[in-house]
Design a protein around this nucleic acid. Structure first.
Length: 186
DNA sequence: GAGACCAGCAGGG
DNA sequence: CCCTGCTGGTCTC
């Protein structure tokens, strides 16, 4: 089941802004989500990789606007079949591998690469994360890198807790604690 | 290149 | 609890 299986999430860096993004909606345990796929090349062949995964918090239209804002000039193409195929991998019981495509600065990539190594149910503080990427004093910078992550859940920003115990989350504090509670009880 | 912005932290009241 | 100073990378002119 999704969130309780330890998916392998290899990150691929996008060299340029994709021209088109295939998108579709999925219903997760924690609400409706917007999933976007782009094409990456792996050796000689090309395949789909997840480049965005947002929670739909207001309406479908608002979520699409959010995509347009963060990915200017990309063409959005509804592709329910591709999304469905992707979902099967997400929900598989095996230790599945799912490709994720990201774009960002060196620090952001380093931060995200550490995050995907986190096991289900584990948590880490921002300070520890800063040490992992070799910038022990750049806690605030690391935090803003975390916040720029486009692929929620798969890049598990919800597993980062602040030392003071304050709960903050881009998708809402309640969602974060729900996710952590769910993972902790499996 | 300057200045503003942050999902942090520690220290002091 | 709240307030303050410090922090470093990124974003926007």
């Amino acid at each position: 089941m999704w969130l309780t299986n330890n998916l392998q999430v290899p990150l691929t860096t996008l060299q340029a802004m994709p021209k088109t993004i295939k998108y579709g909606y999925i219903n997760s345990k924690f609400g409706k989500m917007l999933l976007g796929l782009t094409t990456i090349t792996k050796g000689a062949k090309s395949c789909n990789a997840i480049c965005l995964l947002y929670f739909v918090q207001k309406s479908d239209i608002e979520s699409l606007k959010e995509v347009q804002r963060r990915w200017p000039n990309v063409e959005l193409v509804l592709d329910a079949v591709a999304i469905e195929k992707c979902m099967e991998t997400l929900y598989s019981d095996n230790d599945a591998v799912i490709d994720v495509a990201v774009r960002g600065t060196d620090l952001q990539l380093a931060v995200w690469n550490e995050l995907v190594k986190l096991k289900v149910g584990s948590t880490i503080t921002y300070s520890e994360l800063a040490q992992l990427v070799d910038r022990p004093r750049a806690v605030r910078a690391v935090a803003s890198a975390v916040a720029k992550n486009e692929v929620s859940i798969l890049i598990p920003c919800h597993r980062i807790v602040s030392k003071s115990g304050a709960v903050k989350y881009g998708w809402g504090a309640k969602l974060k604690s729900d996710l952590l509670e769910y993972e902790a009880n499996t």
